[in-house]
Design a binder for these strands. Structure first.
Lengths: 327, 327
DNA sequence: GCTTGCGTTGGAAACGTTTCGGACACAGGG
DNA sequence: CCCTGTGTCCGAAACGTTTCCAACGCAAGC
């Protein structure tokens, strides 16, 4: 920038003003500066810019688990788009469902002076974020120890919707397979129980399966065991898209097909031998809202009390949830 | 850091030395400094750190298209892991297949002083990167106008593998559906032609379909048209996983099922009514290698001439590529 | 006792930007 | 002619590190 100032024969401050909006500079001067910029191929050093007090870098951080999971990938893409429109970059921190690693990654990101944090939190205390002076939005799950914006889907409502749907089809033995994910699956289970209570039907606790892992493999194994019981369920509620995959894998070897409802839509769901009925929300919207909220917070445009935004879930009937109860 | 120095009663340089490795500091002094750091909750300001001359920030940039595409998501995840192990963050730049937008995003990223760039390039000239003084690795595709490391898969070999497989099954009318992606699909087409030539079979050019878009929808439409021809193909080669999806969608309404081979594996491929045969490479490895290479370049550990690494493709037979030729 | 060298420490300079107080020129009003 | 206000511009200070050189204390060697 100093070189530009010299080349244009102007002062340092003038160049800076031209680079940013350029108010208070005569057009003649400004164009001379612009010419020098072009000629020298000058580019503002964002790092030095972010060094100034009060200025945060124009980057948002996004901390989430597995990008391979289309659910998270969709959030990331949507957030990226929204941030990009405002000229913000997105720094990714990935964590493999490990509270300590998550904390370290977040500290790292804060050290990079990001303007805001979008976090898909694991369980554990997040109060250490309170003093960081950076706006935070939690995505998909709430966090303990800090008052911050939260954008989630209506997990309980979705769980109830899925279960009610199966109950309406006449199913009375409905299993639920729960990935060991913080918060979300617990809520889905609650919806499952509430639907049963609403229908006046007791839950057979042996049909509530807590998986040791959130993988398709774990779900496959558990489903196989479920279906080999003397009195197997006639309906299955898979709490996650990976779980749904495992369930469907296991069911390929089963004679009497139970009804299946998944949570969160996934690619090819409608292409499977029996198209898969799911309960789903607008995942991209989740990411968009979170990013927009964070940008508004970061710019100071939004100073309201922390918001809690809950996106609805809808039932998408495709077939697997509508197979009849076999005698 | 000044506060820490004061609190510990030491000089500024000493604190800096302790924070980084801490060689040349007496243990007694160092521990006093560490105590002060803990007490004040000090955290190094990475931005200021990156400001020093020669120092780049400890972030890599990753510029790619659609995170929703599992192929890119897998690369991103793998790169994230490798970078994370070295304490590097990853800044994401997403581009929607738009050369100008790509250039702008990359310039942005360079302004952020990233230590290196991983780029899935679009067509167009990338010579402007040559003077940026930042190491660059191109992923999945080469780029024009600059000598840099490239990590790709063997697109031509994969295309030939897929086509040869269909030819071996006795297919003689094999269609290829090409997404309009820069470089990759062109190579796959070359493999397709080479396989035909090797078998001494002429290519019916009406079976070489350039899709207007790389979406499943476009592929679905094109497939439908193909199969309604008076002399439809008996084998289909889908150049992309999204294309494969569209092909399969269209084929649901077709009586005489042709054989289908896809390029790049995808989730649920083995769960479809006819499990899908694909040609695939180790996508995660692609991301890992690229990130590792870039880190080595950035640290100066690797000063060899630009590398060109090509990952092999393997045929995964699942059924759809092995359906017999109907009379 | 003086010199030499080493291990340790202190602190100024530099990085590239933004910002802020002030300077300068010029016009207009008194 | 002086004063004031306005529009434009200059350049020093500040941001929080790292790095380099100087300085200091101390032990060993002469």
């Amino acid at each position: 920038m100093i070189d530009v100032a010299k080349a244009a024969g102007v002062g340092l401050g003038t160049v800076s003003r031209v680079v940013n909006g350029g108010a208070g500079v005569r057009e003649q001067t400004a164009s001379r500066v612009r010419a020098a910029i072009d000629q020298l191929g000058f580019q503002r050093n964002e790092v030095a810019r972010a060094l100034r007090p009060g200025k945060k870098s124009s980057s948002l951080a996004l901390v989430l688990g597995d990008l391979t999971n289309p659910f998270y990938a969709t959030i990331a893409k949507a957030a990226l788009e929204v941030a990009g429109q405002d000229g913000f970059a997105v720094v990714l921190g990935s964590v493999d469902e490990d509270p300590e690693g998550e904390r370290r990654a977040i500290q790292e990101l804060i050290g990079r002076q990001v303007a805001g944090l979008m976090i898909v939190p694991d369980q554990g205390d997040h109060s250490y974020l309170a003093g960081a002076g950076v706006p935070v939005v939690f995505v998909d799950r709430p966090a303990h120890g800090i008052e911050a914006d939260i954008v989630t889907v209506d997990n309980e409502g979705g769980g109830r919707l899925a279960t009610e749907h199966l109950l309406e089809q006449g199913h009375r033995r409905i299993a639920i397979l729960l990935a060991p994910s913080y918060h979300t699956t617990g809520r889905r289970l609650r919806g499952y129980r509430r639907a049963h209570r609403g229908a006046g039907i007791a839950v057979d606790e042996s049909l509530v399966v807590q998986l040791p892992e959130g993988t398709a493999e774990a779900a496959e194994k558990a489903t196989r065991e479920l279906m080999h019981k003397p009195d197997p369920p006639t309906g299955l509620f898979a709490s996650t898209n990976f779980v749904a995959e495992g369930v469907l894998r296991a069911l390929r070897e089963v004679d009497r097909q139970p009804a299946v409802v998944g949570f969160d839509d996934f690619r090819m769901a409608d292409m499977l031998p029996t198209p898969v009925t799911v309960v789903a929300s607008d995942t991209a919207e989740l990411g968009r809202i979170a990013a927009r909220l964070l940008l508004d917070r970061a710019s100071g445009a939004d100073t309201r009390a922390p918001q809690r935004i809950v996106l609805p879930c809808a039932l998408i009937q495709r077939g697997s949830g509508e197979v009849p109860v076999l005698p």
